[in-house]
């Protein structure tokens, strides 16, 4: 057995690495990856890119409020809001909120879902029964209303919104990981490891986790899009973090400031496009990733 352990170490590592292999063979996924790279760079270097503080109320050279400027006027690429804030800067800073929400939610969803799936699939019995009934309940909870109520009743912050999302969204990941664990368990080598006296923890860490990581990644990457869309809805409805400039908040601001009636397309089109771009990039990547994990001929 010690020999086997020595041999297996590098294999565990390489399996983990193969889990994070990027789907570079798929043209869709490559486009998605490029968009993501741009998105992440924008989010990280927001202060460098954005010409103004996104919350700062700006004035023109003649000390008038710089409100409702059209794109290009007074050097504002996308114009300004009714309160005189720079729309382009808000878009740039909005990337930061979106990245934060997307990544944390994806991490939590993948993490909770994987743990639940692992415990449920590996131990079976009452643990499995309990966790899967919990998953049933999570499927019975109306997602958006739940997040709205939690966000509204707790301190308004991005974290509460993210936690509310994770409390429901782990369900899909949990079920998929569980069935993967079940099929892994039925393979010989897990049984062999158990007979030879390996502890449960060891078997889970060494034999099972490396094999389910790709799925956790896949479901995490799908959750990114959901999280960004949901956060936008929450902010749009006015239950978001008032201190964070997010794309959803911009849309709420525009909607409440009669931007539609005033045909201020330059105000509410860009945040929507930004969301579409990032979320569909996520879809493209997860599709490519899925094809990588489950190659389906002729698809």
């Amino acid at each position: 057995m010690p020999e086997a352990a020595v041999i297996r170490k590098p294999r565990v590592l390489s399996r983990v690495f193969s889990a994070v292999r990027l789907p570079v063979g798929d043209p869709f996924a490559v486009v998605g990856l490029v968009i993501y790279a741009l998105f992440i760079v924008t989010a990280l270097s927001a202060p460098l890119i954005a010409p103004y503080d996104p919350t700062e109320i700006l004035y023109t050279e003649n000390y008038d409020l710089a409100s409702d400027l059209l794109p290009g006027e007074e050097g504002h690429v996308l114009g300004t809001t009714s309160l005189g804030r720079d729309i382009f800067s808000q878009i740039v800073w909005g990337a930061r909120s979106a990245l934060l929400v997307g990544l944390t939610a994806a991490f939590m969803v993948a993490f909770i879902g994987s743990i639940v799936g692992l415990l449920s699939g590996y131990f079976g019995g009452w643990v499995d029964a309990l966790l899967m009934r919990l998953a049933d309940v999570a499927f019975g909870i109306p997602f958006l209303p739940f997040v709205i109520v939690i966000s509204a009743f707790s301190e308004p912050s991005i974290w509460n919104t993210v936690i509310a999302m994770a409390l429901v969204l782990w369900r899909d990941t949990g079920r998929v990981i569980r069935s993967q664990v079940l099929s892994l368990r039925s393979r010989g080598y897990v049984e062999a490891a158990r007979v030879s006296g390996s502890s449960d923890l060891k078997i889970i860490l060494r034999h099972i986790t490396p094999n389910i990581l790709p799925l956790s990644f896949l479901y995490g990457s799908i959750a990114i899009g959901w999280a960004i869309l949901t956060e936008a809805s929450i902010s749009f409805l006015g239950f978001g973090d008032p201190d964070a400039i997010s794309w959803g908040f911009m849309l709420q601001d525009a909607f409440n400031s009669q931007a539609l009636a005033r045909q201020a397309y330059h105000w509410f089109i860009p945040p929507g496009l930004a969301i579409i771009l990032v979320v569909s990039a996520g879809f493209f990547i997860s599709r490519g990733y899925e094809n990588l994990l489950f190659p389906k001929l002729g698809r």
Binding site: G225, L229, A232, S233, F236, G248, L251, A254, F255, L260, F268, I269, P271, G272, I275, I276, V279, S280, G282, F283, F284, R287
Partner: peptide, 15 residues
């Protein structure tokens, strides 16, 4: 089609 799935519904409504 994928992009329509990535749209915030309320934004589409606004447009």
């Amino acid at each position: 089609v994928l992009a329509t799935r990535a749209m915030p519904e309320f934004w589409l409504g606004m447009v």
